[in-house]
């Protein structure tokens, strides 16, 4: 046993200091009125949670906005990634080329991607609209709450679809060729081949794809920070940005922000558990 500890202690030390203690501390501070600077703070029980869930309009709006974003991302990111993966795998030539270019945006930081797209939305798209080819592109992408939601979705998908696509490609390559050939010989159509053979075989990857998309979407921060800063007003503020501003920008209410951060954790945790259970059950049935 001493031997186990000798090998594990270095990693454990860093893990405990920089993950476990802050995690536990977050739960504790969430029940205090700590403001980050003043060493004196009081235990206030669950009043931070009550305030966040009943009085804090801005926070509740950010929760709703995040849920809306999560819904669209989980559906669109997976659907587009799977579509592109299937199309690429269905080709004889150019597989690697398409895969390489479509995955490339994922190598770019969300912040950089957000800033580059800010340029596209505010400078390039109005210019393209002026040439008369796609007049509908001339929108207030950053200034209008409706359009800035689409802008955030577009950038998130631009970065994120390639990631899931690569996972789906790996899963598609894992489907045994004999199985597909056998079905083809039996006269199965392309559509039927996909729904009856390929889709059930790659369902574990779909579980992973949904799980990853869900997790990433709940934690969305950088794209919104770079693109809209949560604006116009606070129309596109997401949970992570709300917590960040509460703690570091506006009020320095560290205790209150910690309570919200714990709520975010619980939200992600519960939804992930539910989703994993549903997906596992469906896999067994097939």
């Amino acid at each position: 046993m001493r031997n186990v500890l000798f090998f594990v202690v270095p990693a454990l030390l860093f893990y405990v200091i920089f993950v476990l203690i802050p995690a536990a501390g977050g739960v504790w501070y969430g029940m205090t009125n700590w403001n980050g600077l003043n060493p004196n703070y009081r235990f206030v029980g669950l009043s931070n949670y009550v305030e966040a869930l009943t009085e804090d309009r801005v926070f509740l709006d950010s929760v709703l906005f995040t849920l809306k974003y999560v819904f669209f991302m989980v559906v669109l990111q997976n659907a587009l990634a799977l579509l592109l993966a299937v199309l690429i795998e269905g080709r004889n030539r150019g597989k690697v080329l398409f895969r390489t270019t479509l995955f490339m945006p994922n190598m770019i930081s969300m912040v950089i991607g957000g800033f580059v797209w800010l340029f596209i939305f505010t400078q390039v798209l109005p210019e393209i609209a002026q040439t008369g080819i796609f007049p509908f592109l001339d929108q207030s992408w950053i200034g209008d709450p409706v359009w800035s939601f689409y802008a955030i979705l577009i950038v998130s998908l631009w970065v994120g679809v390639g990631y899931l696509m690569v996972i789906y490609i790996a899963a598609l390559q894992g489907v045994p060729t004999q199985l597909k050939e056998a079905a083809e010989i039996d006269g199965a159509s392309r559509m039927r081949l996909f729904t009856s053979i390929v889709l059930p075989m790659i369902l574990p990857a779909v579980t992973i794809g949904m799980f990853l998309a869900l997790n990433m979407a709940f934690k969305v921060f950088e794209v919104v920070y770079a693109l809209t800063g949560g604006g116009p007003g606070r129309a596109t503020q997401v949970i992570a940005l709300n917590i960040f501003e509460e703690a570091f920008n506006m009020s320095n209410r560290y205790g209150y922000a910690s309570a919200k951060a714990t709520l975010l954790f619980l939200l992600v945790f519960i939804i992930t558990l539910i989703q994993l259970r549903i997906m596992k059950k469906r896999e067994v049935e097939l």
Partner: peptide
């Protein structure tokens, strides 16, 4: 989530 530990 990282956001849950970042403040502490």
């Amino acid at each position: 989530p990282f956001h849950s530990i970042m403040i502490t």
